[in-house]
Design a protein around this nucleic acid. Structure first.
Length: 390
DNA sequence: AATTTAACTCCCACCTCC
DNA sequence: GTTAGGAGGTGGGAGTTA
């Protein structure tokens, strides 16, 4: 007997960060609003209690757009776009700083609301989830409507949902009717509704793969389905080619993962101006230490230790290098992290200005109850003179 | 004894996603 | 003067081990 057709939903909150901001600033509803840019985008309140918002044209810096309202998207402003470029397209758009604590709060609210209808949920970041509706009683459309209702009641926000036989199709489907959408897809919809879509609509085909496909004359999902698997294998290797062929046939057997353990923790920062390894050595060292200390806090808060510390250095030309250092036993304190990260840094030639510095902890383990280094080692933090910027 | 080879791990760049 | 920050994953090359 074959397995019954599953009912997998994908739920995506509509312009999530921007919509949360509109709850706080309802007078901005209907306007082009862009979230991003840090504290300089904070609105001010004058003596009459009137709020004054920052316009995009007033922004200077290296940030990117985190998200934007649909009105701003109409002007061509999308997530991950450089802020300066966005300012050229929509100089009058309102700019707001991102407020992650608030987004996390609303994220919890909407996920709890969904869980009251269907408990088997997979987290995919702050604003989207997969939901397994297979064993939830009720008609598919009714269930989806009920979920949209409880989310709206709990948060005041709209979302878009698709229900399909698998994650692949559910994820594609939730984009088809945004915002406030409800889409139901079956395998019969593959040819008429999925094959005409651009290949890059598939979760897993990013800009690079899309360009390589386009160079071979493959533009849509249907083009992938029509391609000879042997031809795909020649250009993409067996593993990726097989995956492409399967997804183009709408096949995806991945299960809903209701729990996950963190694989890595990292902290990175882009400087407001590029820092030179020699001229700005003191500042670099200070920022480097701060990253290690913040990473240590993250690990300690979750009671994790790390046996592999990595660094990331991005130079002014955007060229990026990483280095790892594997440790004999897990660490979580700032001093040990900094020591390991310094070992990594010694292996990088530092002769150009640096744009970004990052520190990552992987090979994570749960800290034993009494294990780990005692608190006093933190006093040991010192600036190792042997490292270039240490 | 020297050489070949498969399997595994580590390191690193790169890709993708939100 | 594009290009954040945090995460997961893949695959090739180098080195090690059996």
């Amino acid at each position: 007997m074959s397995a019954p057709t599953r009912r997998i939903a994908h739920l995506d909150m509509d312009a999530f960060f921007a919509s949360v901001e509109l709850l706080r600033y309802p007078e901005l509803r209907g306007q082009a609003v862009v979230v991003g840019g840090g504290h300089r985008a904070t609105p001010t309140v004058d003596e009459n209690g009137t709020r004054h918002f920052v316009r995009l044209r007033e922004y200077t810096g290296r940030g990117v757009v985190t998200t934007s309202t649909y009105e701003a998207r109409k002007l061509g402003v999308f997530s991950a776009m450089g802020m300066m470029k966005a300012a050229q397209l929509a100089p009058d758009a309102i700019l707001l700083p991102s407020n992650f604590d608030s987004y996390r709060h609303y994220s919890e609210l909407f996920k709890d609301a969904v869980a009251s209808v269907a408990p088997r949920i997979e987290n995919r970041g702050i604003d989207e989830i997969y939901i397994d509706l297979t064993d939830v009683p009720g008609e598919t459309r009714t269930l989806a409507q009920r979920i949209k209702r409880v989310v709206a009641d709990a948060t005041g926000l709209t979302c878009s949902i698709a229900v399909a036989p698998n994650k692949l199709l559910a994820k594609i489907g939730s984009e088809l009717d945004k915002p406030d959408g409800l889409t139901i897809l079956s395998m019969d919809d593959l040819e008429p509704r999925i094959w005409p879509l651009a290949a890059k609509k598939v979760n897993g085909i990013g800009p690079k793969a899309n360009d390589r496909l386009a160079a071979l004359g493959i533009h849509t999902v249907g083009d992938i389905a029509a391609a000879d698997p042997a031809f795909l294998q020649e250009h993409f290797g067996l593993s990726y080619a097989s995956w492409l062929t399967r997804i183009s046939a709408g096949i995806d057997e991945r299960e809903i993962e209701t729990e996950s353990v963190p694989r890595s923790k990292s902290r990175e920062t882009t400087f407001s101006r590029d820092l030179h390894p020699r001229r700005d050595r003191a500042e670099l060292s200070e920022r480097f230490t701060a990253l290690c200390m913040r990473l240590a806090e993250d690990l300690e808060r979750r009671n994790l230790t790390s046996a592999c510390i990595s660094i990331k250095v991005r130079f002014s030309d955007f060229h990026t290098v990483t280095r790892d250092h594997t440790l004999e036993r897990g660490v979580a304190d700032g001093a040990s992290i900094r020591r390991a990260a310094t070992e990594c840094l010694k292996r990088v030639t530092l002769d150009r200005s640096i744009r970004l510095l990052g520190v990552k902890a992987s090979a994570l383990s749960e800290q034993s109850i009494d294990g780990g280094a005692p608190k006093w080692v933190q006093a040991e933090i010192q600036f190792d003179a042997s490292a270039d910027i240490g």
